[in-house]
Computed example of a mutant assay.
Amino acid sequence: MFGGGGMNPRKMKQMMKQMGIDVEELDAERVVIETADGDDLVFDGAQVTKMDAQGQETYQIVGSPDAVADAGAGGAAAVEGGDADDPALDDADDGDDGIPEEDVEQVAGEAGVSKSEARAALEDTDGDLAAAILDLQ
């Protein structure tokens, strides 16, 4: 934001305070972002920072969403409940092959093939998406 690469953190904090910017680390356990398209982002254990600059509050979340929940499937409650029947909530994998379902869907869509063909190509390339797509085209 201010180009403070390599600057002393204490000096950066002092400069921000002089400019009227107050920074506070929040002890957040979980952050849920509900989007308009219904794909909610759920962050567990993310680092959350609140900045107050002249009365305008800004929140920064550092971390990766642990799950993406489809609001039609119960939203964040479906993530918390661990609904194993909903593939949109399956951010790990879809079987013993260790290939994430999201990767299978991406390869199938890009290469214009079925999910089973995409999964086989991903298995042949040890999960390399680009190589799988190239092999199928």
Rank of each mutant, 00 (worst) to 15 (best):
V31C: 09
M51L: 15
M1Q: 10
Q106I: 09
Q137H: 08
D52Y: 01
A67V: 12
A71T: 09
A111M: 02
Q14C: 06
E25S: 11
G127E: 05
A76W: 08
E80V: 08
V107I: 05
D96A: 14
E24R: 13
L41T: 01
E25Q: 13
G127F: 05
I21C: 09
A77W: 02
P87Y: 00
T58Q: 14
Q14P: 03
I99V: 13
A28T: 12
V31R: 07
M19H: 10
I61T: 01
I21Q: 09
T58P: 02
M1P: 11
G95D: 10
E102R: 15
A67K: 12
S116P: 02
D70F: 02
L122N: 02
G75M: 00
V107N: 00
D135H: 06
T35H: 15
D94S: 13
D94K: 09
T58I: 08
G5R: 10
G75R: 00
A92T: 12
V42W: 01
V23D: 01
G82R: 07
E101N: 04
A36H: 06
G82P: 04
A78R: 01
A132I: 00
G20N: 09
D93V: 02
L26V: 10
I21N: 08
R119S: 07
L41F: 11
D22P: 01
V31E: 06
V113D: 09
A130D: 12
G98P: 03
M16L: 15
M51P: 00
L129C: 03
E57M: 08
I61W: 04
E123G: 13
D91T: 13
D44C: 04
L41Q: 13
E123R: 13
G5Q: 13
A111S: 04
A88M: 11
A71C: 05
G3K: 06
E117K: 14
G20V: 06
A69H: 01
G81M: 10
M19S: 12
G127H: 06
K17M: 13
E101C: 02
Q54R: 11
